[in-house]
Write a protein that binds this DNA or RNA. Sequence first.
DNA 1: CGGGTTGGGAGGTTACATCA
DNA 2: GTGATGTAACCTCCCAACCC
Length: 211
Amino acid sequence: MNPQVEDQMELISQFYPGIYTQLEPQQGEAKPRRRRKKSKGEASSGGTRKRKLTPEQVDLLELNFGDEHKLESERKDRLASELGLDPRQVAVWFQNRRARWKCKKMEEEYSRLKTEHESAVIEKCRLETEVLKLKEQLTEAEKEKQRLLERGDGGSSNSASPSFSMEAMDPPFLWEFGMEGLEAIFHLPGNNYIHGIEWVNSPYEMLLEKF
DNA sequence: CGGGTTGGGAGGTTACATCA
DNA sequence: GTGATGTAACCTCCCAACCC
């Protein structure tokens, strides 16, 4: 045993007699479960008393916990003798450590899910705004088309221009077809120029920019 | 196969130590 | 002195392995 630890234990034993009796289990003796004392007075006068593990003991325990969270019998006994602790103490430490680890994992998971949720909400808002913008653009395009038809040749139904309809453009229409669907819907001639309207910043291209 | 025993894990609680 | 917090020790329940 580490001499420094031994010194500390001896010192503490002087002030709290009986505190380390658990370190010397009587071989072959049945070990009944210790009932905790309820009164503080009893605890300080020789009953079971909590003691803090030394930083060295905690370090080694942590090191072992890092290797493997579960504790087989053999490893427990080996660790206990290395640390000068009762195997029961080592087992208890591992139990508590696993509980703390799980708790921490839960907190991390919660925090990760919260961030994910927040990002999803932001993305949803962005997409909703995008949909509104696109609908506005389509309305404008529809109006422009009407103006051109009224001013021009009277509106041939065999026109080469894409046939838009506001009913068809209502969501969820846009999102049901994927990118190929969008491309088909917004298919444009090579010069991006239809009936005097420049489509350089077409809704489709705006969408592509976003993705 | 069924029942008893044992060891160990999870989850929860209690009691003590420490600190602001 | 006191409330909050961390943690060692404990309790209870459950499950798997083993033995008879």
